[in-house]
Design a protein around this nucleic acid. Sequence first.
DNA 1: CTGAAAGCGCTAACAC
DNA 2: GTGTTAGCGCTTTCAG
Lengths: 347, 347
Amino acid sequence: MPDPVDLAKERRRVTMRDVARRAGVGTITVSRALAEPEKVSPELRRRIAAAVAELGYLPNHMAGGLSSQRTRVVPVIVPSIRNAVFADLVEGVNDVLLGEGYQILLGASGYDPAREEALISAFLGWFPAGIVVVGTQHTELGARLLTRTEATVVELFELSSDAVEINIGFSNAAAARDMTAHLLDEGYRRVAFVGAFMERDVRAGVRRSGYEEVLAGHGLPARVLSYPQPSSYELGGQAVQDLFARWPDTDAVFFANDVLAFGAITECQKRGIPVPQRLAIAGFNGLDVGARMTPELTTVLSPRREMGRQAARAILGRRGPGAKRREVIDLKYEILVRASTRRRRED
Amino acid sequence: MPDPVDLAKERRRVTMRDVARRAGVGTITVSRALAEPEKVSPELRRRIAAAVAELGYLPNHMAGGLSSQRTRVVPVIVPSIRNAVFADLVEGVNDVLLGEGYQILLGASGYDPAREEALISAFLGWFPAGIVVVGTQHTELGARLLTRTEATVVELFELSSDAVEINIGFSNAAAARDMTAHLLDEGYRRVAFVGAFMERDVRAGVRRSGYEEVLAGHGLPARVLSYPQPSSYELGGQAVQDLFARWPDTDAVFFANDVLAFGAITECQKRGIPVPQRLAIAGFNGLDVGARMTPELTTVLSPRREMGRQAARAILGRRGPGAKRREVIDLKYEILVRASTRRRRED
DNA sequence: CTGAAAGCGCTAACAC
DNA sequence: GTGTTAGCGCTTTCAG
């Protein structure tokens, strides 16, 4: 009676046929016992399970995928892996997929549509069940690939009227408008906006537009600082200096993200600039650091994890063929008003 | 002349045979032109490239993998996706793999060996080129699977004499000892250690031991606070209170990670506890927030990204069969002494 | 340098 | 409820 170690030594992997022979059944029965146990009699199921365990059988996903033309793989393409915002997204996808035997293929585009395109085309070679991407802007070819694939396509983090299939996000523009309105409500009038990497980071650009709209609506001039490089704590600190150099009377800043805002708050601490008395600071995304700073950071809570979860659920739900059904899901954001912009302390 | 859209409408993917026919060559020549272009004449190469482009051919990775018994897939199993420490690791792997056409399958174990085992066995079904895991402690079956697989196995973040194959990490124990020694050097004598989730987080436990060793070596009593739940900013804040409740005269704390330390520093800010005058605080990992806090956080810089990079390089380098060659690579850590533990300001 | 035939290990479709 | 047959689309021999 061969044991698994012997088979391993033969340099041959245990196949479904080995299991079938051992259990005294056909291979298809093994296949069914593994994929749809309810269609196999309890007795055979038991014998097969025993054979699987004894032989240490591991299913060959390549063979299964080739034959069935589908796999339990879900590529997720994010702009950046290290950015906590996207880590939350991936975590959300993972939350839902984990228990279902699905696996995540991770790709980082670096905010570069060309790299995104390369990732899309590589990933589609896996016959994925679905594919999750951030944003709705792609290269022409990228968009075509997404349109053509059998996989369920989910585009996250924005809302767009011409998304490929499923679009789950929130309105960055509305959130930015609300935040800007909050600053004006609090009485700030010389409100600046600071963004970074906005040629590439589409959503940051949208936030900027939201800010500009509201200021214009109030007849106030916009003060925008836009850095070409990606966001960092250092850059947020730098922005405080640049801001005062350019518009010394600025009384509030809306940062395109919390990383910049965090850098700005720590910079103000170091330089003794009272926040919000001298300068009110707002961020975007609602990272949990925000709640631990002094002062606590006013920010927009984006439903990152929930977007990931719903993306995964959409993919799981949409098994089986059929044309793409378009759907836009608008998740809510939340304006978290905290001490960094509040004129009066509440107590 | 059929164009790609027509083929797509046929609901049939473009295959290598389609490309071959169009280019007027055999399928194997197409295969070679894609995988080993130098073995194909320039003329055919050109025709094949043209056919690929015109038809919009995407290679089917399942078929290729099934046939060749190997894929350009590298599973990476980390304890947690959201933890910035592991995001850096994954980013490092990605840095190196990206250009080589390899792809990352991401798994999160939640610090649970059983879940890690499930991930390992699922991932091995993809005939991965290599597999990257955090830590050297696995379930018995998990370890056996890793030993038996053809894939290059890389274990990260610790050093162990009985790693499966390639082990890239640093000494958590030595780092913890160095940090503890630093605190004693600075003159602190009532030094505590705070860890979280240490039953699961093996490395945190190792750090604790390093701390205890050094204290014992100086004849000082250990003060260890160990929380069962995972680390969070809040927990770090909580620890400050618990610490003073239990050992009111504590003058320094060594936290098992920067997240806890960050929470503690902000807590001290809120409660007006001067750091380091009343309480010195040290962390572990060298997250970049540390450099932006007031006071800046003393911590241990762990070579996270570099571990990821070297893991990927090891996998790329070790193509082709052959028995596993064991190798331990000891990357250096760095003690970053900053204001949160320094007795006197330097100027 | 190029090609023909065989087969990787599984599942779909159809029998029984 | 179970088995048989025929591929899925590549890459690996082995010839030329």
